[in-house]
Simulated scan of single mutants.
Amino acid sequence: MYKVHEQSKYPNYLALVVTHVAGQNDITRVELSRGDCKEWVPMRRAYGAVWDTANLPEGSITLRFEATSSVGNSYWVQSTNALPDNWEAGAAYDSKIQLTD
């Protein structure tokens, strides 16, 4: 799950709070891409589980996350549920991702 942070301002600034990361994994990078584009743009880790960017593509946004396990193994997972182009601050979205070791 991820939630659009309350400080987000559509369409100029997006901050996401990555939630429900349990177990032995940590989200170490987040990248976004416009739905039909394959160019990934990194988000900045603002603090804790909050990732942000001021460089937003137009349209729906696809997200991918790098997960790192407690033993140092890293892998990328991509959300199959895009952030809609009319996202709102405070809204929560299901990434449809299950992290594994």
Rank of each mutant, 00 (worst) to 15 (best):
Y13G: 01
D52Y: 09
A54L: 08
A91E: 13
T28D: 03
A46F: 11
N81R: 09
M43Q: 04
S60T: 04
D52L: 06
S74Y: 04
R29I: 00
N55W: 08
A46S: 07
L32T: 03
R44I: 15
W51H: 06
K9N: 04
I97K: 09
S95C: 07
Q24T: 08
N73G: 01
S8L: 10
G90M: 07
Q7P: 00
D101V: 06
H5C: 03
N25Q: 14
V41I: 14
I61V: 10
M1L: 12
S8C: 10
V17R: 09
A67P: 00
G35D: 11
W87G: 02
Y2W: 12
A15S: 13
H20T: 13
R34D: 15
L63R: 04
D52H: 12
C37L: 09
Y75M: 05
A46L: 13
D36P: 01
S74P: 02
D101K: 02
V77A: 15
M1T: 11
D101Y: 11
A91Q: 09
R34F: 04
A22R: 01
L32Y: 07
Q98L: 13
G59Q: 05
S33E: 05
A82N: 06
A46M: 07
T53N: 12
Y13M: 01
Q98G: 08
P42N: 09
A49T: 07
V30N: 01
T80G: 15
Y2C: 03
V77K: 12
P11V: 00
S95W: 02
W40E: 01
L63C: 06
A15E: 14
R64I: 12
E88M: 13
K3V: 11
N73V: 06
N86L: 03
N73L: 13
R64H: 04
Y10C: 05
E39Q: 07
G23N: 11
P11S: 04
P11H: 05
S69C: 06
L14I: 03
R45Y: 10
A22V: 09
T80S: 11
R34I: 08
K38D: 14
L16S: 00
N81K: 10
Q78N: 06
F65P: 08
S69F: 01
T68W: 08
A22H: 12
Y13D: 07
V4H: 04
P84C: 09
S33W: 01
E58A: 13
T100I: 14
W76A: 10
R45C: 15
Y10I: 00
P42Y: 02
R44Y: 14
